[in-house]
């Protein structure tokens, strides 16, 4: 029973941790490119915000899966 709990907690941690790393990596690349773009074309700020925000969905999906594992949905 305890081992099962440990494995579930580990699975939940992986479910949110890996997408979080992936999101961070993607946002670092997009953010750097976006900052360069904004220096030349400030009018593209909304587009850049949208582009930076897109990978966040990964970590939210990870969070949902993690919550489902932990709460046994």
């Amino acid at each position: 029973m305890n081992l099962e709990k440990v494995l579930m907690a580990f699975a939940a941690a992986l479910a949110i941790g890996l997408p979080a790393l992936a999101t961070a990596w993607a946002q670092s690349k997009i953010g750097a490119a976006g900052a360069g773009t904004l220096a030349e074309k400030p009018e593209l700020s909304a587009t850049i915000i949208v582009l930076v925000a897109i990978p966040e969905t990964m970590v939210i999906l990870g969070f949902v899966v993690s919550a489902m594992i932990l709460f046994g949905v």
């Binding site: 966040e56 969905t57 939210i60 999906l61 969070f63 949902v64």
Partner: peptide, 12 residues
């Protein structure tokens, strides 16, 4: 569908 799930951030 991905967009809808994205609203989970409100709770998170």
């Amino acid at each position: 569908i991905g967009n809808i799930i994205s609203y989970a951030r409100i709770m998170a």
